[in-house]
Design a protein around this nucleic acid. Sequence first.
DNA 1: TTGACATATTCCGATATGGGAATATAATTC
DNA 2: GAATTATATTCCCATATCGGAATATGTCAA
Lengths: 110, 110
Amino acid sequence: MARASTTSDAFNAVAEPRRRDILVLLAADERPVSDIVATLNLPQPSVSKHLRVLLEVGLVDVRRDGRQMFYRTNADAIRPLHEWSGTFERYWRHQLARIKERAENKEQPK
Amino acid sequence: MARASTTSDAFNAVAEPRRRDILVLLAADERPVSDIVATLNLPQPSVSKHLRVLLEVGLVDVRRDGRQMFYRTNADAIRPLHEWSGTFERYWRHQLARIKERAENKEQPK
DNA sequence: TTGACATATTCCGATATGGGAATATAATTC
DNA sequence: GAATTATATTCCCATATCGGAATATGTCAA
């Protein structure tokens, strides 16, 4: 079967580091493709391809203005990721607590 | 170059749905492989392979007891994911605020 | 040792990826 | 309409994936 498509999921789409960079860049404001190309120093076709993936998954929105395409991160599509990873928060808190505890016991043994 | 290895990153490792299931299952308590196999209804070799990936990325820890291997989620390795996605929180808040606003304007136009 | 149980590894095949290069499409300007 | 600018698509390739099936490794028990 091979790996799940990059467009099957926000999880899969976001696995690619460049796509994460793009999402960060487009979070605050919409930007034309040329801006992304210049800022991230990537070949234009590569950027277009990544944007296509992000668009298919709904992680970005587009708007055309003349010959420019303005892309913008759709933050809401990232929420599932944040929520899923958030379910583990209580567990890493536990771990931290334990580590802290041990550290304190070490400083002041007995 | 092809896609980045699944073992290159927590992001890549977690892109696979079954691996997410495993992580959830192992978050509360350590469990032997046979338990995972039974609970998630997956073929044993498949589970072993997924665990290997998770282990390489540090998303799980193992402990051997006799012939059983007890795996457990290392929640701390999930934090980068949560933190990265968390940087977008302010943006989806904005969006929600806007949507809410529009909805209220609609209810009571003029 | 032999056997039984628990888990890991290997081999296979189909598939999709991301990069590079080239080219296509679309919109604007002259 | 031709040239130019902005973006998208296509083609090719090396690579790694996941699933399935078979098998190997490791540990315990009799």
